[in-house]
Amino acid sequence: MQYRNLGSTGLKVSTLSFGAWVTFHNQVDLKDAKQLLARAKEGGINFFDNAEVYASGRAEEIMGQAIKELGWKRSDVVIATKLFWGGPGPNDKGLSRKHIIEGTKACLKRLEMDYVDVLFCHRPDASTPIEETVRAMNFVIDNGWAFYWGTSEWSAQQITEAWEVARKLGLIGPIVEQPEYNLLARDKVEVEYLPLYSSYGIGLTTWSPLASGVLTGKYSKNSVPAESRFSLENYKNLANRLVVDDVITKVDNLKPIAEKLKVPLSQLAIAWCASNPNVSTVITGATKESQLVENLKALEVIPKLTPSILGEIEAVVQTKPKQADVYR
């Protein structure tokens, strides 16, 4: 495993990481979670991602119980979770000081931990002043409940505002953003966030490198495997957006490139994400140990992504975003 700094911090995170979204509780029980987490750690993964909204808190409970039963040394792993959707009540959601503090305590209770390493604001909250959120996240850090804080799916403008408020108040700004990033979703990472990397030292923990499984090549225009996440009722809308003719055609045309490199398409897609120097870690998921093992092998593919191969990939997907014009 290779390790990278999380943005400009001194925190080292594995290039590939493991997340609980969709799988824990919905597809994976405690026994399977223990096997997956143990195999991930054996493969060098040290960054594990969760959120209060995943399976309505059950994903955190399963991860916490699994780690406890595995007997891991807490300092050996980097645990991240996210706050925004904590429950049905009017103050159980959002980024108010009340929900950030109460939500953090609830997350820690479910995880059975004294602290998380990174705490994310899962979405921006237009109904809460950014200063209130920045102050509350710093309160969490000052109390030792989290070491770093970050954002997920915020705009560059919102991250900039948070940083300017933090600097004005002499506080800590968000050091990491968690956006979707894959061959089909590139604008934020490759264009919108560009100024943030140098201005604020923002790192990225990217999610959905396989576009919810589409980039594995297992979907066809008229078929959704019974055990896939797109077969789950809550993900049917996502399936309708991604399992379409144009996307499936691009995926099919990527397969010869993967075959030329003698690797599965899934490894090619994950390696492509990890090859971006602004990405600190690529969050992967798995329901089976065999999937996890295959994902880990993507590390061996990164050196194979020469400029020529990257050019071939771009010629197929044609998703490279247009760079903003610069006037001097």
Rank of each mutant, 00 (worst) to 15 (best):
V189T: 10
N50Q: 11
S198D: 13
E112C: 10
K73W: 01
V224F: 05
R123M: 12
K304L: 15
E112Q: 15
T319L: 03
N276V: 00
I141V: 14
L292E: 09
E161K: 12
V224S: 07
A269E: 00
T206K: 00
D49H: 01
S127C: 09
G7V: 02
V118H: 04
L265G: 11
G213D: 10
G203M: 03
I130G: 01
A80C: 13
V78W: 03
T104G: 11
E61P: 03
V140M: 07
T133Y: 02
F147P: 00
T160W: 07
S212K: 14
G285V: 02
A66Y: 08
A20K: 04
A146G: 06
D245G: 05
K250V: 09
G285E: 03
P179Q: 03
T205V: 14
Y200Q: 07
N91V: 11
I101Y: 05
K68F: 07
K168V: 00
N46G: 08
R135F: 02
Y193H: 07
S208A: 13
E233Y: 11
T9H: 01
I141G: 03
C107E: 09
W149A: 02
F147T: 07
L169I: 01
F48R: 08
L171F: 01
Q35D: 14
K260L: 08
L210A: 06
Y181L: 00
G19A: 04
D246C: 05
A38M: 12
E192S: 14
W72L: 13
E314W: 02
L310N: 12
T206S: 03
E69I: 09
Q323I: 11
A66D: 08
L299F: 12
Q157G: 01
P321N: 07
I283D: 00
L238V: 12
E112P: 04
T81Y: 02
E259L: 12
V28S: 02
L169S: 05
R97L: 06
T128C: 12
P307D: 06
D76W: 06
A286R: 11
Q291E: 15
I283C: 00
E102H: 14
F18D: 03
L232M: 15
K41Q: 15
V317G: 08
G44W: 09
E69R: 06
V118P: 05
W72F: 15
C107A: 14
P225R: 06
Q2E: 13
S14M: 05
T319W: 01
S223P: 02
V191D: 01
A136E: 07
D187R: 15
Q267V: 06
R167L: 12
E300D: 15
L204Q: 02
L119H: 04
K250Y: 08
S266C: 11
Q65R: 14
R110V: 03
L30V: 09
L183A: 03
N26I: 07
F120H: 15
Q291D: 10
V214I: 15
S223D: 13
W21I: 02
G94C: 10
Q323H: 10
D252S: 15
Y193F: 13
G203C: 03
A146D: 04
I202E: 00
R97Q: 11
S280L: 02
E164P: 00
T128S: 05
G201D: 01
K82P: 04
N253G: 05
D76R: 08
Q65A: 12
L169C: 03
